[in-house]
Every structure is written in structure tokens, then in C-alpha cells.
């Protein structure tokens, strides 16, 4: 569902951060994206999200050439992708509940139609009693879980998670990973960017995409 061919990217006039990246993410697959800090993991995820354009190469998403899409088509693709940002990106003036419900709200759904579902998911990630709190008051781990819930609420076909366990203790990290594996079993392709080796070891069978020196090495 994602295919990169010889993709290269540089920010401005700098050096190439990603060089000749070629890979594919298959439907219903599970993979870790790893590599040292600054290797370009977040950058690679942003390319998939179409929030960055590559300086060269081809990207196709869900079978379509992603670099020649109009805005409506981009919106359409993004609705099939759930994202967990490394820096959360919650809306500070909305409560946790409203933040998690946001993807449904922008799709024009009535609040009554998703209330139960959002509440249940919030309980599941352990935020049942934090629903009406604004993000600035949440702890780092709580924000992280809120962002994960926001990404999952629409049952995306593809989930991109950037350091989803960077701010939580190991036991919560395990629970969150289970959330991702459950999602994977229900048919979602999952990409988790992390340099947490312990986390990766918990899911031994997973494919690993390793970034280093701008190049991507794949270990199936």
C-alpha cells in the first residue's frame, strides 16, 4: 500500500538526509522503522503522509502516484492513515475527549454517533478519568496515549506511529504495543518508528526497516 522507489530528500540546500530509499509496505503487515536519532525516521514518515515532497524518486500510496494528487485526493488518502506524532500535536484548547474525537468530527459525523466509541477507547488506553482535561495539564505519557487513541479511532488502513512509547514506563509500553498488534490483527498495516530495542524484542517476528547514513536496510 506504500511504495517508495529511489526516493531522495534534502531539506533546503542541505545534504541529502534520505538517499535512494526503496521499499514497500504491504497490506496487513507489521514493521518497525529504526535507526539512530537524526537518521530520518520522522522525515520518512512525513514523506508517507505527503507533508513533505521528495527531491527525487517516486512514491505511490494505495496504488496511486502520490506526487500528482490534487488536494481532495490527498485528504482522501490521509483519512485512511492514522498518525501518532512524536511531538503529539494535540489541540490545546480541546479536551482529551474532543481531541480523540477530532478525526470523526472533521469527517462531519454527529457527536452522538461516536460518543460511546470514543469513551470506550479512552478507557482502554487508561484515560477514562482524563476525558475532560485539556492537554497542557496531561502528563507526557497521557498525551502519548491520547495521540494514539486519536490515530486509532478511525480504524485506519495504515498506522504510522513515531516513537509511540517514548514517554511511558515499560509496562504501559507493553500495553500500547499490544494495542498496535491487536490493530494489526484486525487488518491494519502498522509502522512503528522507534529506537527502543526492548520494545522491538517483544515482537520478534516483525520486519525491521533500519535507517543509517541516509540509506534503508531491510531485515525481514
Amino acid at each position: 500500500m506504500v511504495r517508495f522507489e529511489n526516493v531522495g530528500l534534502r531539506y533546503g540546500m542541505g545534504t541529502e538526509i534520505l538517499k535512494d530509499i526503496s521499499f514497500a509496505i504491504e497490506p496487513q503487515s507489521f514493521q518497525f522503522l529504526t535507526g539512530p536519532s537524526g537518521a530520518g525516521k520522522t522525515t520518512l514518515l512525513r514523506l508517507i503522509l505527503l507533508s513533505l515532497r521528495p527531491t527525487r524518486g517516486l512514491i505511490s500510496l494505495f496504488g496511486r502516484d502520490a506526487l500528482s494528487l490534487d488536494k481532495a485526493a490527498i485528504t482522501d488518502l490521509r483519512r485512511r492513515i492514522g498518525v501518532v506524532f512524536q511531538d503529539f500535536r494535540l489541540l490545546d484548547h480541546l479536551t482529551t475527549y474532543e481531541n480523540v474525537a477530532l478525526p470523526l468530527r472533521v469527517r462531519g459525523k454527529e457527536e452522538a454517533s461516536y460518543r460511546a466509541e470514543v469513551t470506550e477507547l479512552l478507557r482502554w488506553v487508561g484515560l477514562g478519568d482524563r476525558m475532560h482535561i485539556l492537554p497542557p495539564v496531561l502528563s507526557g505519557g497521557e498525551k502519548q496515549r491520547a495521540v494514539i487513541a486519536r490515530a486509532l479511532i478511525v480504524r485506519p488502513a495504515l498506522l504510522l506511529a513515531d516513537e509511540p512509547t517514548g514517554n511511558v514506563d515499560p509496562s504501559l509500553a507493553r500495553r500500547l504495543l499490544r494495542l498496535f498488534t491487536e490493530l494489526h490483527k484486525s487488518g491494519t498495516s502498522v509502522v512503528i518508528a522507534t529506537h527502543d530495542l526492548a520494545l522491538m524484542d517483544q515482537f520478534d517476528g516483525a520486519r525491521r526497516l533500519v535507517l543509517g547514513d541516509g540509506r534503508l536496510h531491510i531485515f525481514d
Partner: peptide
């Protein structure tokens, strides 16, 4: 700007 960007990421159309 930040809010608009987030709205785009969660699937909001320009018209919305």
C-alpha cells in the same frame, strides 16, 4: 497555522 496543519493530518478537507 499549527491547528490548520493538525486538522489536515486528521483528514479535514479545505472546505471544512
Amino acid at each position: 497555522r499549527e491547528i490548520i496543519e493538525i486538522l489536515h493530518y486528521v483528514g479535514a478537507a479545505d472546505a471544512y
